[in-house]
């Protein structure tokens, strides 16, 4: 496998990983499992409701920055980073 395709494969794996988390917190906890999550209540919030209206958004922000850091490392590893 050439360097370029190895870089692309690692990037895709990272994206898939991030998007799984992205899916679980919003579509999973916030929508599909909301009733089960709502049985848990923390600090005045039902957890499903909290994920739908607060938590998912915080995690989205964290995810992007996680991806940024990981990609900057990956760019260097494969020597495709910008000067």
């Amino acid at each position: 496998m050439s360097d370029a395709s190895a870089y692309w494969a690692e990037n895709k794996r990272l994206i898939v990983g991030c998007l799984i988390v992205w899916f679980i917190v919003s579509y999973g906890f916030g929508i599909l499992l909301v009733d089960q999550m709502n049985k848990i209540s923390i600090a005045g919030y039902d957890l499903g409701f909290w994920f739908a209206q607060q938590g998912s958004m915080y995690i989205f922000v964290a995810l992007i920055f996680f991806y940024v850091v990981k990609m900057n490392k990956l760019d260097r590893k494969y020597n495709v980073h910008e000067e």
């Binding site: 994206i15 991030c18 998007l19 992205w22 919003s26 916030g30 739908a52 209206q53 998912s56 958004m57 989205f60 995810l63 992007i64 991806y67 940024v68």
Partner: peptide, 13 residues
């Protein structure tokens, strides 16, 4: 709330 923020994750990646 989720829809108009989650799109940025897609955008960034």
């Amino acid at each position: 709330l989720m829809g108009w923020t989650g799109g940025y994750v897609l955008l960034a990646m």
